[in-house]
Amino acid sequence: MLYDVLVRSRPTLMRLGPDRYSSRSLRRQNLTPFAAEATVQGRAPRVECYAVSRQQAPSDVAAMLSLGLGDAVVLRENRYLADGEPVQLGDTYLPTNVVGTSMLATELDLGPGGTFAALERLGYRTARIKEQVTTRFPTRDEAEMLKLLPGAPVIVLLHASIDSDGFPFEVTRYIIRSDVMAFFTWRRSLPDRQRIRRHRLACQRVRPPGFAGNRQTTWRELAGHRQWSAADDAIRVPPRGAAVPGKSCAGSCAGGAP
């Protein structure tokens, strides 16, 4: 009995990174993201939507949805179970101009594919996501719904879905059990050095004003180049043979100050 309390007998359920929102994968399996990742790990998923209502958007949700303070949203409250064990809660906030009078605004059961399938039927498909992760201790209601042991913290994940036009159309606040779930995420590539190498080759090709000598530039120096933008995660490499504006490099390709 003590072993069952102190040591989890079931394997940790992994939240499988951004690819859990891959539209192609979900359409092929006709599953929700949670159901897809639980199934691939040999777990039996179940999602219970126990309330649908119209509420004022909390301030952090309103900011992520680009709404004004006090704007109304549709709130769908869910509980997620794996093998009959509650593992997370999810409050999904949907702008009223997105869901209208569709079943997302009225029905508890959305059928196969759940919320994201219903949103796709309305023309909203996830192109990218934005997520913020924090931790805290649960409220009493959260502890009861998740059947948490005393003293166990929860992971709070605020997730936003954004379409290809940059429009945020869905936000969910997940309350995740830290004792039974974990995060697994990855990148398909590590592009920074590759992009900087392309940038270095381009700068060597066009020899911008201020380029001093032939000393090879380090990737750290190039990271400070004016054409390097960490904010939009892209490098704008001039086409082969293109002229470079007089202030575009400002000598930083030669190690000068950017």
Rank of each mutant, 00 (worst) to 15 (best):
D60T: 09
T96V: 12
L122K: 07
T218A: 13
W228C: 10
S229D: 15
L149M: 15
D60R: 11
A250F: 08
Y21M: 06
A51V: 09
A105G: 07
R177F: 01
P86S: 07
H225I: 08
R15S: 08
A63P: 04
V180H: 04
L104N: 00
I162Y: 08
P238D: 03
V40P: 03
A234Q: 14
E221F: 00
T96I: 07
Q29F: 09
V206F: 07
P153R: 11
C249V: 10
L190I: 01
D19G: 06
G114R: 00
E144M: 12
L94C: 02
E144P: 03
A143V: 10
V52D: 06
S53Q: 11
C203F: 09
S248H: 00
L6S: 12
V206R: 05
L69A: 15
Y174S: 02
G111K: 01
V156A: 10
E48M: 05
E107I: 01
T126I: 11
V87I: 13
A223H: 12
A242E: 05
P258S: 14
N97V: 07
P258T: 13
F184V: 07
S248G: 09
G251C: 01
T12Q: 09
R79T: 11
G166E: 07
R205N: 13
V180D: 00
A250E: 03
A72L: 14
R10A: 15
T39M: 01
S248L: 05
R15Q: 03
A250R: 10
W228V: 11
A223Y: 11
V74I: 13
R28F: 13
A223R: 13
Y80D: 03
E144N: 15
Y3Q: 13
G256T: 04
L89D: 05
V61G: 01
L190Y: 10
W219N: 15
L26V: 03
A254M: 02
T217V: 12
R121C: 04
L94R: 01
R207I: 15
R200A: 11
L201F: 11
T39N: 04
H159K: 14
A38L: 06
Q227S: 11
P239L: 02
G111V: 03
M103V: 11
T106M: 01
L158R: 06
R187F: 01
P112G: 03
Q55W: 03
A254P: 01
M1R: 09
F183R: 04
L6R: 11
R207Y: 08
R236D: 06
L16W: 02
Y174F: 14
S229L: 08
L94F: 04
T39E: 09
S59E: 14
G151P: 13
R125M: 04
P112E: 04
V87H: 04
V5K: 13
P18N: 13
A82G: 07
Q41A: 06
L158N: 09
